[in-house]
Nucleic acid binder design. Sequence first.
DNA 1: TGCGGGCGTCAAGCGGGCGTCAAGATCGCT
DNA 2: AGCGATCTTGACGCCCGCTTGACGCCCGCA
Lengths: 224, 224
Amino acid sequence: MTRVLVVDDDTQLARALRINLRARQYDVDLAPDGATALTVAARFPPDLVILDLGLPDMDGVEVVHALRGWSSVPILVLSARGAQAEKVTALDAGADDYVTKPFGMDELLARIRSALRRSAPSDTDPVIRTEAFTIDLATKRLTTDEGEVRLTPTEWHLLEILVRNPNKLVSQRHLLQEVWGPAYETETNYLRVYIAQLRRKLEPDPSRPRHLLTEPGMGYRFEP
Amino acid sequence: MTRVLVVDDDTQLARALRINLRARQYDVDLAPDGATALTVAARFPPDLVILDLGLPDMDGVEVVHALRGWSSVPILVLSARGAQAEKVTALDAGADDYVTKPFGMDELLARIRSALRRSAPSDTDPVIRTEAFTIDLATKRLTTDEGEVRLTPTEWHLLEILVRNPNKLVSQRHLLQEVWGPAYETETNYLRVYIAQLRRKLEPDPSRPRHLLTEPGMGYRFEP
DNA sequence: TGCGGGCGTCAAGCGGGCGTCAAGATCGCT
DNA sequence: AGCGATCTTGACGCCCGCTTGACGCCCGCA
């Protein structure tokens, strides 16, 4: 998970940030002052730092300098002071962005996403592995022990839905609606044909499926 | 020298920016609207783009999208509108920073330095080699065993998108949108013609492509 | 034990996607 | 204005993937 270090002595704001970040699936560390921030950052290197300039023990710019000494982690500076000179020194010290309080939470989150996107361009590779085959959803590639396998568009569409809901039962209705459209909700024979094709292409023993399972009368399930 | 592309229809502001940037030893290109911006960016790839959202011909966010289709150049957005939603969409479209007018020149310059500092180290040499040909994206040169090959602008645009996503399936929709614009999303015959031309120019055996592969019904893929 | 519905399998047809070619239309340069 | 390069557009044939129907099997149920 993405780890964010929030450095702020304003417990009110820090808590608000933590709640919002947690809700977005970020892992959040808190540090109330510069010294702890540097210790925590060294011990648990974060993927992003949110740094309030107004710290009790040291100048925020000092913290930026110290971090930049050994890390290139994105640093997003918060400050109540909006003076230009302030911003210039912080940015030139190595900060990546500078947001003036009060700020909107949505904007801050967008800036966080932007900073993270830059630092980790090829970070999330949605690759699913089973003992029999490997699926790369980004590049649309599928490999088995026998080598690479080609899937038709419909086969991909179907497989993708199942794979994105691992271990979960997906109803026939849902599959049909997603792949063929709402008008085909009852054409279960399509599913039979295509599930069979998928099994033939990627199950070691197509007649005894281990990953693409049928739940009679209900739907299908992908088991990794 | 560092090349900055300024996209703004406000000639007053554009001129002010140019003067200030020139004074800091930046090379400055100007574009008054989105269309010229994209053309210029394709012809003379900048190291940074300063983009005013209020353009006469198209939405600024469209420009961000189009650029991100083939380039990872830092984009710094300017806007008179300070609404949060505005910022969020621009940043999520791929912009790196968002500055609200009126802004201080010193701050803008500091943000420019910050953006350039980040992109500087990750400046990978844009040369792609395969057994059959070599592509230099910076100088727009393409050589095969037979010697140097000339490509038309459209051919370049298409090839560039594919080459920047090696091994990845790029959908027909995406290619059409990036090269010909959103209105051509369904004109797949364009792709057929141009992919064929590219193959004829750089595949050893155009009828059996090894690097520009078709994924029937889905799109195309570049394999190094 | 006989019946019926849901599922898996197979194969035939046919429509659409793809590659190819070439003739206009358009653009840009001289 | 004229010319060449480039882009657009249309036509054609081939092949693949989607659709569709038939059939057999298994299981639950009467």
